[in-house]
Structures are given as structure tokens and as C-alpha cells.
Amino acid sequence: MRYPPHIWRSRTMTRLAWPSAPPEFRNVRLRAFTNNDVGMVLDLSTDPYLPQIGSLPGNADAEQAHAYIERQHERLGTGAGYSFCVADRRTDEALGVIGLHLASIAAGRASAGYAVAPRSRGRGIAGQALTALTRFAWSVPGVHRVELYIEPWNLSSVRTAEFAGYEREGLLRSHQEIGGSRVDMLLYAATRSAD
């Protein structure tokens, strides 16, 4: 699917543009989702944690995986932000998903979320993808800060954040509900360097 070159972001009147060149870092490339990515989405849906924090149903079937891909395409058009498929830079194999969420762009803030499919874990993919996404974020007008919210038990996500240069800023107690319980979140952030 191709995105229109410019989409108006309603609240801030900032144009969101799909990147002219895919963001890349080391072995990964961030690109738009295609229907060829269904297998990766099905694999991702087997993770028991992800259905609690996102829109992908647990143990999805092919129809649900296709619907998930379509929802990713809609994010730019609605002004919600950017949703990328994380792909192998050499083979274009789908490895995971990463997004830049712009609900707080009027305040200069964005947040990011990422997940690597179980079959592709343990290779540093998430850290590379987050580095590529963060570099891309600084090209989005109005974004001066990118935040991550990580449950304290999720040490692999903490390592990912730190690999990509994010700094821990604190613990947000009872920050949000996940799986029917209020949970604490670690706040990590990266800020745009002053030019």
C-alpha cells in the first residue's frame, strides 16, 4: 500500500509524510506493511503479552492478521502516527512491528512501541529498529521528545531502550491498566539534540 505524500494532522496542522527513504539501522529497515507480512503477524500473535497491550488478538487467524495490517495502514491517515513493519534490510523478511505515536505532538512529545516476532528474537532486532525509528522521529516536525513506557519486569525492553540511547527518567506508579490490573511503568525518553 502506498500512502499519500502528505496527510494533515488535524490538531496541529502539521503535515505527516511517509518517509521518502525507509529508516534503516544496521540490519533492519522500517517499511510499510504488505500482505506478505501475515506470517510474521501470526507469529507475533502467539506472544501472550501483546494482546493485552495492542490491537492484535492472541493466536490470530489469517483474517485477523490481515485486519491488523490494514489498521497499521490507517494510522498515518488518521494522524495517530507511523506504524512500520520491521524488516531484514537484506532479505526484506518481516521481523516485527514498531510505531511512533503522535497523540501528544502538540506538546512536542511522541511515544514509541515495538515488538519482535518470537521466531526473530534474540538477535538485537528491537534495539536496531528503535534506533532507526528514533532517528526518523527527529525528522517529524514538532517532535522534540520520544517516550517509552516499560513494565519493570520487562528487562529485554529495558535493554532495547538503553541500546537505542534512551535514558531512564523514573517510575510511574499505577500508570495504566494491563490485563485487568493497574501496573507501574518505567519512563524512558530520548530528546532531540539542540542544533
Rank of each mutant, 00 (worst) to 15 (best):
P48S: 15
G124K: 04
A87S: 15
W153V: 14
G54Y: 02
A107I: 06
A110Y: 03
Y68D: 10
A161H: 03
L76K: 02
T91K: 00
V116R: 01
W138T: 08
A67P: 01
L44Q: 08
R71A: 15
G77M: 11
S156F: 01
Y149I: 06
S83I: 07
C85S: 13
A137T: 07
S139K: 13
R89G: 05
N59Y: 09
L100Q: 00
P48H: 14
Q72H: 12
L100G: 07
G96Y: 05
L148W: 00
G99W: 01
A94K: 06
Q128W: 10
A132V: 11
L42N: 03
R159I: 09
L42Y: 02
A67F: 05
A117H: 03
R89P: 01
P48E: 15
L100K: 00
C85K: 01
W153L: 11
L56Q: 06
D61E: 15
S104G: 08
A117Y: 03
E74L: 15
A126W: 01
R119K: 13
G77T: 03
S55I: 11
Q72Y: 07
D88S: 12
S104F: 05
L155K: 12
T131Y: 01
P118H: 13
T160K: 04
V41E: 07
E74H: 08
Y49C: 07
S111W: 03
L56K: 06
L95Y: 04
L102C: 08
N59L: 10
R121M: 08
A164E: 01
A60M: 07
V86T: 10
L95K: 07
H73K: 10
L148Q: 04
I150G: 02
I125D: 00
Q72I: 14
R123T: 05
G165L: 12
V143L: 10
V140K: 07
S45H: 09
P152D: 05
P48C: 14
G113R: 06
V158N: 05
I150F: 04
R71P: 00
G99R: 04
A62L: 05
P51V: 12
G81M: 13
A94L: 09
P118W: 09
Q64H: 04
A107R: 12
P141Q: 13
C85W: 02
E151N: 11
L100D: 01
A112P: 03
V146H: 02
T160P: 07
T78N: 12
S111V: 11
E93V: 14
G79M: 12
L102A: 10
D61Y: 14
Y49D: 15
S139A: 15
A80K: 13
V116S: 02
Q72P: 02
Y82V: 13
Y114W: 11
A115V: 08
G58W: 12
V143N: 04
Q64C: 09
A164I: 06
E162H: 12
I125G: 01
Q64W: 01
R123I: 05
I53S: 02
L50Y: 10
D92T: 14
D47C: 10
Y68T: 10
Y49N: 12
Y114R: 00
S157M: 04
L95Q: 07
L130I: 08
A132L: 09
I53P: 00
E74M: 15
E147M: 11
Y82K: 00
D92F: 06
F84I: 13
R119N: 14
A129P: 05
T78H: 11
G54K: 06
T91C: 04
E162V: 13
A112V: 04
H73G: 08
D47Q: 12
L95T: 05
H144C: 14
L100E: 02
